[in-house]
């Protein structure tokens, strides 16, 4: 379920993962590595510069059973948000 950009900006992330220095498949590997440290129901924010992540992170969330919330791109890089569901 995607969330409006305004709401995303208000979201408090439990953890921010910086994957800006890496291209495919780096952001997905980073998400996979970090998800274990986030409580169920918690929000993970992934920073990325590889625009393919806009498609890949939702696909990863769908496969892994997490809730992809959406992205913001006005910081000069991407901020992608997801909620850990299990």
């Amino acid at each position: 379920m995607t969330v409006a950009v305004e709401e995303l900006k208000e979201l408090k992330s439990d953890q921010v993962i910086d994957a800006r220095a890496t291209s495919c498949p780096g952001p997905i590997l980073a998400a996979k590595k970090a998800i274990g440290g986030i409580p169920v129901g918690g929000v993970m924010e992934v920073l990325a510069s590889d625009t393919g992540t806009l498609k890949d992170l939702p696909a990863w969330c769908k496969k892994m059973g997490h809730d992809y919330l959406g992205s913001v791109d006005d910081a000069g890089y991407l901020q992608l948000f997801l909620r850990k569901m299990k």
């Binding site: 495919c24 498949p25 997905i28 590997l29 998400a31 996979k32 990863w60 496969k63 892994m64």
Partner: peptide, 11 residues
């Protein structure tokens, strides 16, 4: 190896 890594990251 990109595909293998991606698939492994998707469990």
């Amino acid at each position: 190896f990109v595909i293998a890594n991606g698939a492994a990251a998707m469990d």
